[in-house]
Design a protein around this nucleic acid. Sequence first.
DNA 1: TTAGGTTTTAATATTCATTATCAATTCAGC
DNA 2: GCTGAATTGATAATGAATATTAAAACCTAA
Lengths: 143, 143
Amino acid sequence: MGKHPNHIGLLKDHLAKHQLKLTRQREHILTVFLNVEHITAEQMYRMLAKKEPHIGLATIYRTLNLFCEAGLAQARHFGTQTQYDNVSHKGHHDHLICTGCGKIVEFENCDIERLQEEVARRNGFSIKTHKLELYGLCSGCRH
Amino acid sequence: MGKHPNHIGLLKDHLAKHQLKLTRQREHILTVFLNVEHITAEQMYRMLAKKEPHIGLATIYRTLNLFCEAGLAQARHFGTQTQYDNVSHKGHHDHLICTGCGKIVEFENCDIERLQEEVARRNGFSIKTHKLELYGLCSGCRH
DNA sequence: TTAGGTTTTAATATTCATTATCAATTCAGC
DNA sequence: GCTGAATTGATAATGAATATTAAAACCTAA
């Protein structure tokens, strides 16, 4: 039994439900993905570059989007690229981002999450996911 | 005196401080911008398409980025495009986004903002701006 | 007002991330 | 192992945003 049996299960369920196939490429991409917190398609491509035979960039994109549909990943637009977040790796961390040096600090705050639920309920929404990013200067960049 | 004297002032200040010029194009783009909550470069381009002479798309992008530097606008990556938010139109509204029908509800919540400040302080950050988006299903799409 | 120097514009080319295309290959069920 | 459908890889295509550059607009000072 592997290190992430439940998530491989999630993927297999999704594949079965949508008459999709489990391929060597999808397994390789999943293996890498389950061991990171977030990754871009380019980073994934480079990490798998040494594999023989080569896995094409288009396949990386297709597969990461597949993970999103299967509920394993969550896409997040960050700068010019898309980060694919591994949902299993976070209680839900949000980001503090320094606009000076680019440093990123991850945090989670239950009180904020609870208030978010409240806002959603008042508006008739049920939240699936969220994205919270705070932009400012870190202590170092504030001089 | 126009409808938004203080914001035209903000822009003029910024232009003066950076030895930039107030042009007909910048005024037209500002006029449209001050009357919307948020807009994409493409939408702005289409809204100004009838103007003679034509205002180029590159100018729209440059000017909206200029507004960001001047503190009038705030860029937000949304889907594949960039939304330019009019900061004067919000105490700071965040977004509830329905993943079913795409409906967007804007809200603001002082308690959440206060907690954000607290998180930032604990991490040595001073917040300039933030982005909070809640994704889920609205009452209509939940059936 | 005009000349000179700078900034800005418009049109277009370019870049870069992502998606579409499609022939060849691989997979899953019989 | 067949057979039909899904998938892959290579590459072309798309689309948003930026860079380029010659021409136009702007500002200032004489």
